[in-house]
């Protein structure tokens, strides 16, 4: 009876298993193998893939010494563009703590019992489910130097707004601002809302009886009780921050003005410059960074987060 149940379970799992093997595991293994090879998919068949050892990785993250005309030797990255794209990606991730704090605040505000709250919740969730490119085009209008609504608002208070999407200084903050708009009221807020509703009411009541005000309750009851949720959101945000950031620069700036992220860099190397082995190496270096950061986060969380 038990083996029959197992068999049926296996049967139900089979389509997913086959899909996983074909569309996830095989590409992952293939890309790992490819990262040690040189392959131009248009010029060469799969049979002509040439192993190059660690060369892609050395090209990507390695350094070499260079002596200038004054005889001074310095270390220079083999591929400064990769490091630049990594810097851009990490810079744009600086918005994560702000977004998380704003999501929490929003969730606290929306965790009240009052008429029409469902409408408010839906309204704040809406940006995260609207079509990406459509909203990007809208933001491109808003960021316009001369006619955009953002600079018009700034002009009312006597500030001359910058050319947001064509400035090396402002293009990254502009993309971060748009990402925050879409992210604050999104899944993070929903997770915080769910977390808030799990906190026993007695804890707040006890704190109130002890004379704790709203701010103290938030600081000493709500935030500690939400640590597991916060940790989860942080991990997911770090991962998606490192892996994401493709569509907005691709659509809004074309990757110019310091907005090329690692994922956009990877796409260009593979699909525009036909360097499949090198692009695979970029993907694996990115994976390694994500993996290490996640491990560090878990280690830190073990000490601080209680479930």
């Amino acid at each position: 009876m038990r083996s029959r149940a197992l068999g049926i379970a296996a049967l139900f799992l089979l389509p997913n298993l086959l899909g996983f093997l074909a569309f996830t595991l095989f590409p992952v293994v293939a890309s790992f193998a490819l990262s040690f090879c040189r392959w131009d998919p248009v010029a060469e068949p799969v049979s002509a893939i040439e192993p190059v050892g660690l060369r892609n990785y050395v090209d990507l993250v390695g350094f070499h010494s260079r002596t200038d005309s004054g005889g001074q030797t310095s270390w220079v990255a083999n591929t400064p563009r990769f490091w630049e794209s990594l810097y851009n990606t990490v810079f744009m991730m600086l918005a994560i703590p702000f977004n998380m704090a704003a999501s929490l605040l929003l969730a606290v505000l929306l965790n009240r019992k009052m008429r029409g709250m469902a409408i408010f919740r839906s309204a704040f969730f809406l940006p995260s489910i609207t079509a990406g490119v459509g909203t990007m085009l809208l933001w491109m209008w808003m960021f316009n130097k001369d006619m955009g609504s953002i600079n018009q608002v700034l002009a009312w208070v006597g500030i001359q707004g910058p050319d947001w999407l064509q400035s090396y200084f402002w293009a990254k903050p502009a993309l971060m601002l748009m990402a925050s708009w879409a992210g604050i009221g999104g899944v993070n807020m929903i997770l915080y809302l769910a977390g808030l509703q799990q906190i026993p009411r007695e804890l707040h009541e006890a704190a109130a009886l002890d004379g704790a005000g709203r701010w103290q309750q938030l600081r000493h009851v709500t935030v500690p009780m939400l640590l597991p949720v916060t940790f989860f959101i942080f991990i997911i945000s770090i991962i998606s921050g490192l892996e994401g950031g493709f569509d907005a620069p691709y659509v809004m700036t074309g990757g110019s003005f310091g907005t090329t992220t690692v994922s956009l860099y990877l796409y260009r190397q593979g699909f525009e410059f036909f360097r499949m082995g090198y692009a695979s190496a970029v993907a694996w270096v990115l994976f390694l960074i994500v993996f290490l950061l996640t491990m560090i986060n878990w280690r830190l969380a073990e000490k601080r987060v209680e479930y």
């Binding site: 491109m140 209008w141 960021f143 316009n144 130097k145 001369d146 006619m147 955009g148 050319d163 999407l165 064509q166 691709y250 659509v251 809004m252 700036t253 074309g254 110019s256």
Partner: peptide, 11 residues
């Protein structure tokens, strides 16, 4: 105009 025709360059 200073805005070049690139994505996001202008309205």
């Amino acid at each position: 105009p200073s805005r070049l025709e690139i994505p996001g360059a202008g309205i």
